[in-house]
Every structure is written in structure tokens, then in C-alpha cells.
């Protein structure tokens, strides 16, 4: 499952060999919906407001490398770079261009405020960091053809159990269509942190949410670290989806206990 990328592009890892893909599975989503509803029905937890789950909810409670403000800024800027690269935008200066693109979409918000509070040294460090992460991304991404229908920063908001539970997610890159005869949707999340023990939960969560959203089981779910060039890639099967459900169940139980 774990690859350290050397020469082959990420794009190839995402789609793989078409002849090896399983047939499109559009029945599993209904089963998963039913299981989630049973899970919610069994739960004594009756929230006054919807319980919102994100991939970050599945991470350990201890602060991680990417949870600092600087880490979040780095993550957002690298995701912006991914969006530009996937859409064939040439970056002259990877920090200046990415920063300018990000600012153009940011109204006043906490992240922008954090950026403006950085002193010159911190900004210089962030710029160097971004240049290095973007250079890794550019080196390994490869060309994503438009015929693969790439979408960047794909957000999901699934309301379940009459609105008692909301599954939110954001996948950096989704390629493929849910309407092909074979499984074709591939999900890629890019992180600037090394892949830790929680990364696999994130992979599973993306796969579960995408299955519920599109009604079709994705082909694979991948996570790429621009810090270490590790690529974790999992073909989505029933076992993976059941484990994702178990992850959600354990978070629900945690909420009940709290």
C-alpha cells in the first residue's frame, strides 16, 4: 500500500491500469446508508444541533504537525498550488504566485489574519517551505488530462439521520466519473505533514463519504505527503468501507461519552 515515489508520476498511481479495474458498484452505497441509519438509531446520543464529523475528527486528540496555524497556512497554500498545477497554470515563482492566487479568494478570515501577523522571518521561512513543497508536488504530480475530469477541492456535506449527523469532507483532487462501467473515481489528498497512523483513517473516511455522496464505490483513495514523498494508496473495497464505518461509530461513541 505504501509507496515512496521515485520517478513515476502520481497521476499514474491514481488511475492505474483500466483493464484491472473492478466493475462499477452502485449497490454498496445503499447498504452503507442503511448501516449508518441503524448506527444512529441505536445511539442514545440526541444532539440539539447536528454532530459534524470531518476527517480531522478521526485524528488523534493530540496536536499534530499540521494543526498549528503555520501548518494550516502551509497546507492551504500547497492545496492552492495543486489546483493551479492540475489546471495547467505555469508558476513563475511558486510562493508568490500561489500566495497571490490564495489572497484573491480570501476575504478577511482567521487564516489571512494569521498570515498578516507573521513577521519577516516567519514569512521568509513559510515562503521557503512552500517553494520546497510545491517543487516536490510539481515533480511527482505528472500531467492530469482534462479527459479524466479532474475536480480540485471537492467539498461534501452529507446530512444523515434527519440532520442529526453531518459528514463533511474536502478532497484535494478527484478524477474520473461515477457513470463509467468500471470503477473510475480516484481521490487524492495532499498533505504537507509526514503520513502518520491516522492517515489511513483519513483515506477510509474520504472513500466512505465519496461513496455515500456519489452512490458509487470509488476506485481508490490516495494520500500523498509532500514532506516525505510517501504515497499511501488503497483500492476501495467492502472491508475498507466497513472499517470507515467503524471509525465513524467510534467517534459517535466518543461524543456520547462526552
Amino acid at each position: 500500500m505504501t509507496n515512496t515515489l521515485s520517478a513515476f508520476p502520481l497521476a499514474l498511481a491514481l488511475r492505474g491500469d483500466r483493464t484491472q479495474r473492478p466493475l462499477r458498484d452502485d449497490r454498496r452505497a445503499q447498504q452503507l446508508h442503511d448501516q449508518l441509519h441503524q448506527l444512529l438509531a441505536r445511539s442514545p446520543y440526541q444532539p440539539s444541533a447536528p454532530l459534524i464529523l470531518r476527517s480531522s475528527s478521526l485524528r488523534a486528540q493530540t496536536p499534530s504537525f499540521e494543526s498549528s496555524e503555520l501548518g494550516r497556512l502551509r497546507g492551504v497554500l500547497v492545496t492552492t498550488a495543486l489546483r493551479l498545477l492540475v489546471n495547467g497554470v505555469h508558476l513563475d515563482d511558486s510562493f508568490a504566485d500561489v500566495h497571490e492566487a490564495w489572497l484573491s479568494t480570501q476575504a478577511a478570515g482567521p487564516l489571512r489574519q494569521s498570515f498578516e501577523l507573521l513577521n519577516d522571518d516567519q514569512r521568509a521561512r513559510l515562503a521557503a517551505d512552500i517553494r520546497s513543497h510545491v517543487s516536490v508536488l510539481r515533480e511527482h504530480l505528472g500531467a492530469i488530462p482534462s479527459s479524466w475530469r479532474p475536480r480540485t477541492v471537492v467539498r461534501t456535506r452529507l446530512l444523515l439521520g434527519g440532520g442529526a449527523l453531518e459528514l463533511r469532507d474536502e478532497v484535494d483532487l478527484v478524477v474520473g466519473s461515477p457513470f463509467e462501467d468500471v470503477a473510475a473515481l480516484a481521490l487524492l489528498d495532499v498533505t504537507t505533514a509526514p503520513l502518520g497512523e491516522n492517515a489511513e483513517r483519513v483515506l477510509r473516511y474520504h472513500a466512505l463519504v465519496q461513496t455515500l455522496r456519489s452512490g458509487v464505490v470509488p476506485l481508490r483513495s490516495c494520500l500523498f505527503s509532500t514532506a516525505t514523498t510517501d504515497l499511501w494508496s488503497r483500492d476501495v473495497d467492502d472491508e475498507l468501507l466497513q472499517r470507515a464505518l467503524a471509525d465513524v461509530a467510534s467517534v459517535l461513541q466518543g461524543s456520547e461519552a462526552a
Binding site: 489546483r83 493551479l84 492566487a101 484573491s104 479532474p150 480540485t152
Partner: peptide, 17 residues
């Protein structure tokens, strides 16, 4: 700017798809 146009392109590609 050129990078902003890149991001506008990305959003429009998402919508069209």
C-alpha cells in the same frame, strides 16, 4: 493577475464538470 485567473479557471472547471 495570472495566478488569480488560474484559480478562476479551477473553479469554473469544477462547475462545468
Amino acid at each position: 493577475s495570472h495566478p488569480s485567473l488560474g484559480l478562476i479557471t479551477a473553479e469554473a472547471v469544477n462547475w462545468a464538470t
